[in-house]
């Protein structure tokens, strides 16, 4: 089971074990990690599951998709490491993934 660490804006870290195959967003929501709204439930249609992928993991998580890019165009405080966490599927290769969370999802 891949481990994911979510770091809140204030520095609080949450380490969770999740089955491979689900998304990073689902990993947060199913473990009650605060700070991920995920209003659309994972359809890449609301940009309320925004995270910053730790630099060391950027190569492994893949590229933003077209729709994801469109949604990030209207999100706040977007950086080069910004991703919508519903669009990152967890694999064993991503075991140990670290993501930072923005101050708010809006």
């Amino acid at each position: 089971m891949p481990k994911v660490t979510f770091i809140e804006f204030d520095g609080t870290a949450h380490e969770v074990d999740v089955p491979a195959g689900g998304s990073v967003m689902e990993a947060a929501v199913s473990n009650n990690v605060p700070g991920i709204d995920a209003d659309c439930g994972g359809a890449c249609a609301c940009a309320t599951c925004h995270v910053f992928v730790n630099e060391a993991w950027m190569d492994k998580v893949g590229e933003r998709g077209d729709m994801e890019q469109s949604m990030l165009d209207f999100a706040e405080n977007v950086r080069s490491t910004s991703r919508l966490s519903c669009q990152i599927v967890l694999t064993d290769e991503l075991d140990g993934l670290v993501v930072d969370m923005p101050e708010a999802q809006h």
Partner: peptide
Amino acid sequence: RRHVSFGFGIHRCM
């Protein structure tokens, strides 16, 4: 929060 009142996608309520 899972409702469609704001719409979804690029036209989602600003």
